[in-house]
Each structure stands twice: as structure tokens, then as C-alpha cells.
Computed example of a mutant assay.
Amino acid sequence: MGNITIEVVKDGNIEQCRELCNELMAFQKSMATLSPETFDTMNFDTRMKKSYENALASQVIVVKDNGVPVGYVFSTVDNIANSKNSIPDWAPVVDPENNKGFYPDWDHLPDKIGCLNNLYIRDGYRDMKLGSKLFTLSMEWLESFPDVEVVFIFVSNGNEAALNFYLSRGFTYSHDVFGGFIKAVYKS
């Protein structure tokens, strides 16, 4: 461990997260108990880059060790008015009878939501409280939008440590997504 820095990406260069995002997808696959093969189609291009480009607002913060990325957090603000019930192509159909999409069927689900999409710290850096720091910075950014009433985090199945991390920080379990492939938590 050398010189650890935390940098907000201001120039749109999210390419520096490609390797880390792909590591995250492989990590999630290794933890998954339901449909791990679904992660085979998930990577930087299909998940992070696509979300970054389509969001109303995006923030990426990168942790570097001597200039080399070792972790990141990626957050977005999205308008979900037309996609509340949509199911992406990659989504597994675990239970066709109860295949809920990303968002709950609340009476008042706002059209504009915040989302902490990815938080990943490379092994060897996880005991340095960097995940907590990135989480705090992401939440500060998401909470800076006065018209964002709710923030969602979608946790892959099998990743109980991540789920417990978010629950211990004030998030509440909302629902299973795609028959339990993902667990949704929220904070309003």
C-alpha cells in the first residue's frame, strides 16, 4: 500500500473502472446461489457504461493506490417513470409467477430515484474502511438532489456481507427482484 487517494471523476473517464467493474461482476457470480450464469453477460459495457450514459446524473469516485484504481463507487439519479415495470434482457426468470422488476409496487413510487449502483474495493484493501468512505461520499451526493426522495441499492444474491453493510447504515429491505436474484434495499 502506497499513496491512497480518493478522486471524483470529473472528466467522464469511467474507463479506468473497467477492470474493477468486471472484477465485481466475477465476485458477484462467485457469491451467487441463484442463477450465477446470469453474470456471464454482465460486464463494464453492459452494466456500468450503459447506466452511466443513460442516467440523468452520474457520479463515479475512484480509490487509487499510487495512481492505480483499487476501488470505486458508481451512483446515478434516474427517471424511472417509463421503466418502473421493465425487466432488462439479462434478468433471470427464477419464478415466472412472481418475477418483480427492480422497483416495488408502492402506492407512491417517485419517478426520480437515486441509486448506488456499484461499490467495490479490491481484495487487500477491504480492511481500510475505504468502502465506508465511498458509501458516505455517494450518499452525500445522492442526498444533494432535493427532488430525489428515495435511494435504492440492489444487492446480488449470496452477498450477505454487502446486504448487512447497507442495512446497518439505515437502509431497509424492500423486496426480492427477479425471484430473489437481487435484494432491493432503500432509504427515503
Rank of each mutant, 00 (worst) to 15 (best):
E160T: 06
P88H: 04
K10W: 02
G158N: 03
L137G: 03
K187H: 10
K112W: 01
N3I: 06
F152S: 06
F152R: 07
M25P: 07
W141T: 07
V62I: 15
V94T: 13
P69I: 06
L20N: 11
N79R: 09
Y52F: 09
F27K: 11
S83C: 08
N82T: 14
E23L: 15
D111A: 01
N98W: 08
N13L: 00
K50M: 13
S86K: 14
M31C: 15
S138Q: 10
G12P: 09
D123A: 08
E97V: 14
A81F: 13
D95Q: 08
M128T: 01
P69K: 00
S174G: 12
L142E: 04
G114C: 00
V150F: 00
V62P: 09
V8A: 14
V93W: 00
V70T: 02
V73N: 02
E7V: 09
E19F: 09
K187D: 10
K129L: 10
M1H: 05
E23F: 12
T136D: 15
M25K: 03
L56W: 01
S132L: 11
T136L: 13
Y103W: 11
P69G: 04
H108M: 06
S138P: 08
N66S: 14
N22Y: 03
N3H: 09
M1S: 07
G114K: 00
V148F: 07
E19Q: 14
G114M: 03
M31Y: 07
L56G: 01
L167K: 13
W141E: 11
L34R: 07
K133T: 14
T38E: 00
P92Q: 02
P110L: 02
V151S: 11
M42G: 09
S35A: 15
K10L: 10
E140D: 15
A57E: 14
D123Q: 09
V93S: 04
T172C: 08
L109R: 05
N117Y: 01
A26E: 15
F154Y: 11
V150A: 03
R126S: 01
V9E: 05
V93P: 00
V77K: 00
N13S: 05
S138C: 13
E23Q: 15
G131F: 00
R47W: 14
L134E: 14
